[in-house]
Amino acid sequence: MTLKCIAIDDEPLALNLIRNYAMKIPALQLVQTFNDALTGAEFLRHNPVDVLFLDINMPDISGLDLIRSLKERPMVIFTTAYKNFAYEGFELEAVDFLLKPFTFDRFAKAFQKAFDHHAARQTQTETNPESLVVYAEYQRIKIALSDIEYIESSEKYIKIHLVKAKPVFTLMSLQKVLEKLPEDKFKRIHRRFIVSVSKVKSISNQKVQFASGVQLPIGKTYLQFIEEWLRL
């Protein structure tokens, strides 16, 4: 399996370094490099790739804003000289964060994370429709969909509440995990909650209740869930 990537950085030396490092990894194909963020963003809108190596502090538009502007996002590995951007980078679900100047070994480690993440997504899509694969506690964990009661957004993490086990924390947005779940089995009911439809036992006063006794509010923009649930 080969992953296609591009690099966007306003520093020519940084682009040359990424170019040289990429050549050493057979499973990584560097399609193109850009020293202009806007041109790179336009390329991405018409030419999807698997991985994006992206500087954060650029003159025309920051790497963080570039990612926010994309409807379809590749896996992102941020490359920057500034540590203070790390939190925002991971909040945008970056695979890794390379602090300049970085070595080939560190670059290769970041690529391996992206490679493993891509492989996990492929496995889930192709062979595990009844499970969810997430990264937690430095390893991949497969969670049976039937074990999930509800999913909660918790700052930059999500908290997957299970019926008969302790919750699982993973670095992912609520929207991203929703895209991985069967839409007929899981519904968003609030900006902070996704529920397993089959686990909802009752609805009252714009709240869902589970057999466990847990109650969750239904947000004003998600009230259509009540009618959908009643039709089941």
Rank of each mutant, 00 (worst) to 15 (best):
K159L: 03
E11Q: 04
D9P: 08
D147E: 07
E149T: 12
K109I: 09
L15F: 00
R73G: 10
E137V: 01
R192F: 09
E126W: 08
I61H: 03
D96A: 07
M1N: 13
F210T: 01
I218H: 02
Y222F: 10
A136D: 01
I141C: 08
F210C: 02
I160S: 00
E183V: 14
K159A: 04
K164M: 05
S131V: 03
F225D: 08
L181V: 02
V197P: 04
S212T: 09
F43A: 14
F115G: 07
A114F: 02
Q32T: 06
K187E: 09
K166W: 04
F186Q: 06
S198I: 00
L232V: 04
A108V: 04
E91T: 13
W229Q: 02
A14G: 02
S212W: 11
I194F: 00
A86F: 12
I77C: 13
D105I: 09
N84K: 05
E130H: 14
D96S: 07
L28F: 06
S202G: 12
F102W: 14
E88S: 10
N57A: 09
I151S: 00
A41Q: 11
L64G: 00
F85T: 15
K201I: 05
L30K: 11
F169L: 01
H118R: 14
G40C: 12
N35K: 10
A27Y: 10
T127M: 05
S204T: 13
S62H: 13
D36M: 10
Q175R: 07
L66I: 08
I6N: 14
F186S: 01
F193G: 03
D50R: 06
L181M: 05
L64F: 03
V168F: 00
K100R: 14
Y87Q: 11
D96W: 02
H117N: 08
A110R: 05
N57R: 15
A94G: 14
A27E: 07
T123N: 08
I203M: 06
A41V: 15
L52V: 05
A86T: 04
F193I: 04
R191G: 09
P182F: 12
Q206S: 15
Q122V: 04
F225Q: 02
Q175T: 09
E152F: 08
L174T: 07
H118S: 14
F111L: 10
I226N: 11
I61G: 03
R45T: 01
Q112C: 03
V214K: 15
D60R: 11
